[in-house]
């Protein structure tokens, strides 16, 4: 029954997006998502990376880069009630002039997802398969198609540590994102938001280093590559 619903939704989405030039579709027919009072958290430290935007819906977009073809796309809600993780494939090579591609998202919980604000829902797109995430190649997702003048948000599960996020370009220019702890509400999946203006990142690739300090000591840093 659930599978059939997912299939029907998938077909509806396919027909809707048939007018779009490019589309990211789930690699498997079975869409994997969970909603319950307490779903198991992934244990990842970097939980989401996205462009901020004023409007929110149950729809997601990917800022595709040249080499993007297969990618893993996960979505986690801050309160730990919703999680999804699926392999995706781009139907055709990204267009350099219009790199923002809709992600087909045949969810059964559209209303629920739409109710989470921009800093309460963490989409994370990473290059390659979900089963092989040794090298974190972060692609930026968004919840609206227009990403001009947006900020980039990194949603982090800090483990109650203080978080610092540095981005270094291939030319050596270093940027620091402003990280702030979320103090109120249930924060099961992530508890810190790091923000940097997208305009300040004018190169295509950055090496990211997420440093965490807790009670006078340094935790193991998280390294990733940001592709934009």
């Amino acid at each position: 029954m659930v599978f059939k619903r997912a299939l029907v939704l998938s077909m509806l989405f396919s027909s809707f997006y048939s007018y779009s030039e490019n589309l990211a579709t789930p690699a498997s027919e079975q869409f994997s998502e969970h909603f319950s009072s307490n779903v198991p958290v992934s244990g990842n430290i970097l939980v989401g990376a996205l462009y901020s935007g004023a409007s929110i819906s149950d729809q997601f977009y990917l800022n595709a880069v040249n080499e993007t073809s297969d990618f893993c796309f996960s979505v986690s809600s801050i309160d730990g009630t919703y999680i999804s993780e699926n392999n995706y494939r781009l139907q055709s090579a990204p267009d350099i002039d219009d790199p923002v591609v809709p992600i087909q998202y045949p969810t059964q919980f559209a209303d629920l997802i739409s109710n989470f604000s921009i800093d309460q829902l963490a989409p994370l797109a990473t290059g390659g398969s979900c089963d092989n995430q040794k090298n974190l190649d972060i692609l930026l997702a968004s919840r609206e198609q227009d990403i001009s003048n947006a900020s980039i948000l990194f949603l982090v599960s800090s483990g109650r540590s203080d978080v610092f996020l540095f981005l270094t370009s291939s030319s050596g220019a270093k940027k620091r994102a402003k990280c702030q702890r979320i103090e109120h509400g249930k924060r099961t999946a992530f508890d810190t938001v790091c923000e940097i203006s997208a305009n300040s990142l004018d190169e295509n690739s950055y090496e990211g280093k997420l440093i965490r300090r807790k009670i006078g000591g340094r935790e193991k840093p998280v390294l990733f590559t940001l592709k934009k």
């Binding site: 610092f164 540095f166 270093k174 940027k175 620091r176 280093k209 440093i211 300090r213 006078g216």
Partner: peptide
């Protein structure tokens, strides 16, 4: 006490 502080210039090697 033992004091830890960030560097003063973001571009310094020791900043992080």
């Amino acid at each position: 006490g033992q004091l830890f502080y960030l560097g003063l210039d973001l571009q310094e090697e020791t900043f992080e």
